[in-house]
Design a protein around this nucleic acid. Structure first.
Length: 572
RNA sequence: GCGUCCAUAGCUCAGUUGGAUAGAGUGUCAGUUUCCGAAGCUGAAGGUCGCAGGUUCGAUUCCUGCUGGACGCGCCA
C-alpha cells in the first residue's frame, strides 16, 4: 500500500467517525513544505454536503484521526485543509522495505495478461523519425507494466502486407535480373522510391505488380518467397535500429499484418452473421451510428473493398479477435499516433459489437502527438525529406561524444564512446518521454543534450555522483538503518518513499512523463541533500544512514531510468 | 459541416477525482568551491493561465459561447 493509500484509508475512517462516511479524503502531496508532507482536502467538500462549518468538521476529523506511528504533527489550515507531517521514523521504516527489495518494495497488483502494441513500422520503407515516439513510449510502458508484475507481451504489428508489396516484389525481380539486388536493398528508402517510379512510369510493370499482390494473397509459393526475402531484409534494418535504441523488440514480438491474412474472410463472415455487415457501393461495410460522416449520416467502416481486397480496419479487427480468442488478453495498449484516434474508437466500438472483445478486455489507444522541428512544423531535413531514424540516432551519439570529450577529455577514447551512446540515446528518449505524450513536441538537440536542467544527462550525472561517493568509501551497508534528522534528509526520504505511487500511476495511465518528473525531482532532492549533508565526513550511524540513503537513491534512479529504457553510467 | 486534441513566464514544459500565494527547467541578474564530481547548490526578477460568461465557499481544472492553432471524417495505413 502506498503512503497516499494508507493516509486515505485513515482519513476516510476519521471522516466516517465525524459523520461523513461517504466523503472522499482527497489526499495529495502538499504543495509546500510548510503545509506538511501530505494534505487531506476532503473536509471542505464533506462540510458542504453536510451543511456544516468546514473548520469544525476538520477538528472532529482530526480528533478521530489515528495516525499513530505515521505522523508526528497534524494541523488544520485555511478553510479546512488537514496538513499531515509524517514522522521521520515512519519514513525510515517505509524505506527499509525498498532497501532490501529489487523491486524497491512496490506492492504488486494481481498479474494481468497485457499486450503493448508499439513501433509497428511499415516494412516497405526504412524506419524514420515518425516511428520514434511509438517505439520509445511503448517500450517504456511495456517495461513499467512488466515491472509491476504483469504478464506483458510486446507486439510489433509491422506493415508487411498490402498493395505496395506487389510493387516491391516486382522491382526485386527486376533488380535480381539486371542489377545488384543486395546493394539495392541496403537502402530501402531508395529501393521503394525506384520501384514507385517504375510503377508510375511503366504500365507493364504496374500490371505485374498488381498480379503479384493477387498471387501473394493467394499464397503463391514463388512470390511468397520473394516477399519473405524482402521482409527479412527490412526487418534487419528495424532490428539494427532497435538494438541501437536499446528497446526490447525482436523477432519474437513481430506479428505483422500478414499473420492475419487467413483470418480476414472469417472476420467478414462473423460480421455478416452478426447482422452488422451491409453492401454499399460494391464494398462490404459496417455502419456505426455512434460516429457521423460529413453528411451527418452514420460513419461507414469499410471491411472489404469492392475489388475484394481488405483494409487495415479488417486486419485490426482480426488482431483484436485473435488477441481475445487465442491469447486471452485482459488489456491491450495501442501506442499509436493521435491522428488515428477516430480509427481506434471505431475499431473498439465495432470489436465490442461483434463480440471480438468482451467487456472485461480493456482496449486502450495510447495516443501521442507529432514530433516537430524547431520551426514548429513536422520534423524534416532541410531539404524537406523525412529523417531516417538510424541517422538521427547516430547524430545523437555523435553530438554526445563531442560534448563528453569537451567536458571530460581525460577519459579514454572507448570510454567516451560508450558514454556517448548512453548519453545520446538517453537524451533522445528522455526528451520525448518527459513530455505529456498527447501533445505535439518540439525536437531540439541543444535542449535535450544539455547537462543542466530536466534532461537525461542531468539524471545520469546525478547517478555518477553517488557512485563516486561509493568508490571513495569502499564497502557500503546498503541496508543500514536510516536515521532522519536534517530537513534535506527528510525531503529526500519523502521523495524516495513515493516511488511506488508514481509507478502505479504510470502503469494505469500510461504516462511515462510522470516517472520522468519524479526522477528529476529525486535527483534534485539528492543534490540538495548532497550539498547540505556531508556523507564521508559524517560518523557512526549518521554516516551509515547517509550512505544508505545515497545507495537507495542510486538504486531508485537506476531502476527508474531503466524503466524508461535509459542506461546509467559509473562515470561520465 | 461534424468530431478529437491543444492555447499556462521571453523559450521548453508540469499542474494528479475543483483547493491555500499557479510551479519546474532554461535564459537573465546576483551569490556560492581550503570539504564527497560546481555538469552542482542558494536567491531575485519574470503570469490578465487565449477571450467572455456560467456553476460555487473556492475554477488553470467543470459547462456554454467566441478567437486562434493542429489533426481526423468511404475503398491508403
Amino acid at each position: 500500500m502506498t503512503i497516499s493509500q494508507l493516509l486515505n484509508q485513515r482519513v476516510q475512517a476519521a471522516l466516517a467517525a465525524a459523520g461523513a462516511p461517504d466523503a472522499p479524503a482527497v489526499i495529495q502531496p502538499s504543495g509546500k513544505p510548510e503545509f506538511g508532507d501530505f494534505q487531506a482536502n476532503g473536509v471542505m467538500g464533506a462540510a458542504k454536503a453536510l451543511k456544516t462549518n468546514p473548520r469544525e468538521l476538520a477538528a472532529k476529523v482530526v480528533a478521530a484521526l489515528d495516525l499513530a506511528g505515521i505522523a508526528d504533527k497534524v494541523e488544520i489550515a485555511g478553510p479546512g485543509f488537514i496538513n499531515i507531517h509524517l514522522a521521520p521514523e515512519f519514513l525510515a521504516q517505509r524505506l527499509s522495505a525498498a532497501q532490501s527489495d529489487d523491486a524497491l518494495g512496490i506492492a504488486k497488483p494481481a498479474p494481468q495478461k497485457v499486450m503493448v502494441e508499439y513501433s509497428s513500422p511499415n516494412l516497405a520503407k526504412e524506419m524514420h523519425v515518425g516511428h520514434l515516439r511509438s517505439t520509445i513510449i511503448g517500450d517504456a510502458i511495456a517495461r513499467v507494466l512488466g515491472f509491476v508484475g504483469h504478464d506483458v507481451q510486446r507486439c510489433n504489428h509491422v506493415g508487411d502486407w498490402g498493395t505496395q508489396f506487389g510493387m516491391l516484389v516486382a522491382y526485386l525481380v527486376e533488380t535480381r535480373q539486371s542489377g545488384d539486388a543486395e546493394l539495392e536493398l541496403a537502402d530501402l528508402e531508395n529501393f521503394y522510391r525506384k520501384s514507385k517510379v517504375r510503377f508510375d512510369e511503366d504500365a507493364v510493370f504496374a500490371d505485374t505488380a498488381r498480379q503479384y499482390v493477387v498471387k501473394l494473397q493467394g499464397g503463391d509459393a514463388e512470390v511468397l518467397a520473394l516477399w519473405k526475402q524482402f521482409v527479412e531484409v527490412s526487418m534487419q534494418h528495424c532490428q539494427a535500429v532497435y538494438d541501437k535504441l536499446g528497446v526490447g523488440l525482436d523477432l519474437a514480438a513481430v506479428r505483422g499484418e500478414s499473420a492475419y491474412n487467413d483470418d480476414l474472410p472469417v472476420v467478414v463472415s462473423d460480421l455478416r452473421n452478426a447482422g452488422l455487415l451491409v453492401e454499399d457501393q460494391g464494398a462490404q461495410v459496417v455502419f456505426l451510428p455512434e460516429f457521423k460522416n460529413p453528411e451527418g449520416e452514420p460513419q461507414a467502416m469499410i471491411i472489404q473493398k469492392k475489388d475484394g481486397g481488405f483494409l487495415y480496419a479488417t486486419t485490426d479487427l482480426a488482431a483484436v479477435r485473435y488477441r481475445h480468442r487465442s491469447l486471452d488478453l485482459k488489456r491491450v495498449v495501442y501506442v499509436v499516433d493521435a491522428r488515428q484516434s477516430l480509427h481506434f474508437q471505431q475499431l473498439f466500438t465495432l470489436s465490442r459489437k461483434a463480440g471480438f472483445a468482451p467487456a472485461d478486455m480493456a482496449l486502450e489507444h495510447v495516443a501521442f502527438g507529432t514530433m516537430m522541428g524547431e520551426d514548429g512544423k513536422p520534423f524534416k531535413t532541410r531539404s524537406g525529406d523525412t529523417v531516417k531514424l538510424v541517422e538521427l540516432l547516430d547524430e545523437a551519439i555523435e553530438r554526445a561524444y563531442t560534448l563528453v570529450s569537451q567536458k571530460n577529455p581525460d577519459l579514454a577514447e572507448d570510454t567516451r564512446r560508450s558514454i556517448a551512446k548512453a548519453v545520446g540515446i538517453g537524451a533522445v528518449k528522455y526528451a520525448d518521454l518527459s513530455k505529456n505524450r498527447t501533445s505535439d513536441y518540439i525536437f531540439n538537440w541543444d535542449t535535450m543534450l544539455a547537462f543542466e536542467g530536466n534532461t537525461a544527462p542531468y539524471l545520469q550525472y546525478a547517478y555518477t555522483r553517488v557512485q563516486s561517493v561509493f568508490r571513495k568509501v569502499g564497502a557500503v551497508n546498503t541496508s543500514a538503518a536510516i536515521v532522519i534528522t536534517e530537513p534535506a534528509e527528510k525531503q529526500l526520504a519523502l521523495q524516495l518513499a513515493q516511488f511506488d505511487e508514481v509507478i502505479e500511476s504510470v502503469a494505469s495511465t500510461c504516462q511515462p512523463h510522470q516517472l520522468c518528473a519524479y526522477l528529476f525531482n529525486l535527483a534534485q532532492q539528492f543534490s540538495r541533500f548532497y550539498e547540505a549533508c556531508p556523507i564521508l565526513s559524517a560518523e557512526g550511524a549518521a554516516k551509515d544512514s547517509r550512505l544508505a540513503l545515497a545507495a537507495l537513491t542510486a538504486k531508485t534512479l537506476k531502476t527508474g531510468l531503466s524503466l524508461l529504457g535509459i542506461a546509467v553510467l559509473e562515470e561520465m
